[in-house]
């Protein structure tokens, strides 16, 4: 077994990389939501002065990365790697942002789990001494995701109650081997769990088993319990997926329901008509950057398990009748070492 392995799927980060800065940019609807006041920047227009939504998404991805570097008092040249991704084919938003940024770049696709995938890999790079400072970032855009995964925006269709609303926004976090915390202490890499859900309008049910599997594996590997965390944060399970996850985890003997915070549920209020809740890589990335990490700096939370969840479907796979594979990676973040 590798020296830093703990149990089946978890590694311990002995040098405890620190999250030293975060930045977030969101669209107008997210700005009007319950967390609106926490974001660094709220766009007036989701086209952001560009000719297409894809260009707008690349622009705010880039801006979020630049912002986090400034907030972390670093120079672009000091960032060893940028790890990031988005929902679009061939990761065009993050690729095109990275083209402008000139930072060595790992493009990651984990659907909506991208932010925790980036944090997990980034923290391991820093911990292993392969980088001093890295930036993890993820973005999504309602309009770019809709046209790729679903229908044209102006098509008059009804959405079922289990459908999600893709978040327009980008979040970025700067992780460094020097810093005052919060610290990334362990990483649990999830495996793909597919329970045969085929409805692309019900991603909560598709992702819940993957989330539950990673949460339970994390507790079993580390010997920790839900009591050891102030929050168990999931990415975008939505209202129904969140409850299903709680029940699945309960069946395995852990009760997380009192501490379970789902970014997709929290980012929009029910009056904004998001149905099951927000989704997209940007959802967990923005909420982590704008709300969760800053609340660790101010002492509101001392510890959390951050676990973004992804539904790894494509329009092609759905049309060919494939079920939706789910994935979730967990990183545990503590205010003190």
């Amino acid at each position: 077994m590798a020296a830093n392995s703990v149990g089946k799927q978890t590694v311990k980060l002995n040098n405890t990389p620190s999250v030293i800065a975060t930045a977030s940019i969101v669209g107008p609807k997210e700005g009007q939501g319950p967390l609106g006041q926490y974001f660094d920047k709220v766009l007036d227009d989701d086209l952001y002065g560009e000719k297409s939504w894809e260009k707008a998404e690349a622009k705010f991805f880039q801006e979020a990365v630049e912002k986090v570097i400034v907030k972390g008092h670093r120079d672009k040249q000091e960032i060893n790697y940028l790890l990031g991704g988005d929902l679009l084919n061939q990761l065009i938003s993050s690729d095109f942002a990275a083209r402008q940024l000139g930072i060595p770049f790992f493009g990651l696709y984990g659907a909506c789990s991208t932010m925790s995938e980036a944090m997990a890999l980034g923290a391991m790079l820093v911990d292993g001494g392969y980088a001093d400072s890295i930036v993890c970032a993820a973005s999504s855009h309602f309009s770019t995701a809709e046209r790729q995964y679903r229908f044209p925006l102006e098509l008059g269709v009804q959405r079922p109650p289990t459908a999600h609303w893709t978040v327009t926004g980008a979040g970025a976090a700067l992780v460094s081997n020097q810093g005052e915390g919060p610290y990334i202490t362990t990483v649990t890499v999830g495996k793909i769990v597919d329970m045969g859900i085929k409805d692309s309008n019900d991603m909560g049910s598709a992702m819940a088993p993957a989330a539950a599997d990673t949460i339970v594996t994390h507790f079993m590997d580390t010997g920790l319990t839900p009591d050891d965390y102030d929050l168990i944060v999931t990415g975008d399970l939505g209202r129904y997926g969140k409850d299903i996850t709680d029940e699945l985890v309960k069946k395995a003997g852990y009760d997380i329901s009192a501490k379970h915070f789902d970014c997709g549920v929290e980012i929009f209020s029910p009056s904004q008509d998001p149905h099951a809740g927000g989704s997209g890589c940007g959802c967990s990335a923005c909420v982590l950057s704008a709300y969760l990490i800053p609340h660790m700096w101010d002492g509101t939370y001392n510890s959390m398990l951050f676990l973004a969840t992804g539904a790894l479907l494509s329009p092609t796979s759905s049309q060919q009748g494939e079920s939706i594979p789910g994935i979730a990676h967990a990183v545990s973040i503590h205010r003190t070492k």
């Binding site: 109650p161 289990t162 329970m195 045969g196 019900d202 049910s205 819940a208 129904y240 409850d243 029940e247």
Partner: peptide
């Protein structure tokens, strides 16, 4: 699992 979630998903 599909049976388990049946009544948890709103129609």
């Amino acid at each position: 699992y599909q049976q388990f979630i049946k009544d948890k998903i709103p129609k």
